[in-house]
Amino acid sequence: MSAGGVSGGRGGRPARPSGEAFWWAVFSAGGVMAALFVPAFVIVTGFLLPSGDAAVAAERSAQFAAAAGWWPVKLVLLGVVSLSLFHCGHRIRHTLMDLGMRGASGLLKLPCYGGALAGSVWLGWVLWGI
């Protein structure tokens, strides 16, 4: 262990307040959302909608469509899914860093947070059209 963290940053750069505080806050909020909502989402779209006969599937699909078309549900979906996406992006980025990609910690932000942002924008556009 060297003392790089106290007097200076990686590679001799002076360390500076990083945006990590912001990403960590979003990660935490997203972690709560993913824990509370995603298992139920998987149960619904992975098992309840595609099982049973066609009539049952149609009935459940109609319920699902009605729910997703109601604006309070849309708002909840937008918040829950986009925060969960950022949660995953942040955790994937830090997992890759822990696995040895520390040197690319800045570069990894692009796919990880950019992907989450793209997914959130797409979701907003999709929900607008439902």
């Binding site: 989402f41 899914v81 969960s84 995953c88 955790r91 994937i92 997992t95």
Partner: peptide, 11 residues
């Protein structure tokens, strides 16, 4: 940590 890859994929 790897749950995030699968949760992300599901999303």
């Amino acid at each position: 940590e790897l749950t995030s890859f699968f949760v992300g994929g599901y999303l």
